[in-house]
């Protein structure tokens, strides 16, 4: 039977409101999604007031400030803090992005909501379970596949061929794009999603790769590739400014060209 509402234990309830810091003049309100499956119960929105004069300039700075000074139980992933590792991807003010490169000047006025990446199971608080996402990335075999024996030094590539990879290789696998895609929400188990398909195209057009036909065969399916309807949420949210929708369109071109 179709379930049109969330199960009772999935409804996000109002949580704790932490006290305002004393003597602060530059305060900002944050509503943060909290959930601990080990505790049981429903997810909740906790409210925090942060002194922006002390918190730093990026959203990750605020989260660290909250963890260090207000509530040490808040859980989130982070590592490089400079937009390279993709660990701190989350939904900030309604848009998926990475917290470490998202500054306050980019955000709307008023309360800022922070929640985990949508559509993925939550491990705890702002930490999504990306097992399926990584499995899909592995499915596209993101590495060089060749039949000819490896050269003595390295596989060579012309400058023009190398240029083809620009806008593709920069992906940091933060999953912001895939988890912003409604097709991926509904068919995430069968549709590979923008991130995996961007990687698929990155290897499909690599002049050194010799498994193009095999790679296209692996994508030839009503779901894996063709659930992209070019709504472009992926390109809009990508923190690295990449355009997975274009890469997906290019794979579709390759599919048509090899048939005709």
């Amino acid at each position: 039977m179709v379930q049109l509402t969330l199960p009772k234990n999935s409804t996000v309830r109002k949580g704790k409101t932490w006290p305002k810091p004393q003597g602060a003049t530059n305060l900002r309100q944050f509503r943060i999604y909290r959930y601990n499956p080990e505790e049981g119960g429903n997810p909740r929105w906790d409210t925090y007031w942060v002194d922006m004069d002390k918190a730093g300039t990026m959203i990750l700075d605020v989260l660290l400030y909250i963890k260090n000074n207000i509530d040490p139980t808040l859980a989130f992933r982070r590592s490089c803090r400079e937009g390279v590792c993709g660990s701190c991807a989350m939904n900030i003010a309604g848009r998926n992005t990475i917290a470490c490169t998202k500054g306050f000047d980019d955000l709307p006025k008023g309360v800022i909501t922070i929640s985990p990446l949508p559509s993925q199971p939550v491990v705890r608080d702002l930490i999504p379970d990306l097992t399926n996402f990584y499995a899909q990335h592995a499915y596209v075999q993101p590495y060089l596949k060749t039949d000819t024996p490896a050269p003595e030094k390295e596989w060579k590539q012309s400058e023009a061929d190398r240029e083809e990879l620009n806008g593709l290789y920069e992906c940091i696998l933060c999953a912001s794009c895939s988890t912003s895609c409604p097709s991926y929400w509904w068919n995430g188990d069968k549709y590979l999603g923008p991130a995996a398909l961007l990687q698929a195209y990155r290897w499909l057009i690599d002049s050194r790769d010799e498994a193009t036909g095999e790679r296209l065969d692996d994508l030839e399916d009503p779901f894996k590739l063709y659930r992209c309807h070019t709504i472009m949420n992926c390109a809009q949210v990508c923190p690295k400014g990449l355009n997975p929708a274009k890469a997906i369109a290019k794979i579709k071109h390759m599919m048509v060209e090899r048939v005709s």
């Binding site: 070019t230 472009m232 390109a235 355009n243 929708a245 274009k246 369109a249 290019k250 579709k252 071109h253």
Partner: peptide, 12 residues
């Protein structure tokens, strides 16, 4: 990005 992608789809 949106126009470029749209053109790719039109071409497809």
């Amino acid at each position: 990005a949106p126009r470029e992608t749209n053109r790719q789809i039109k071409e497809l």
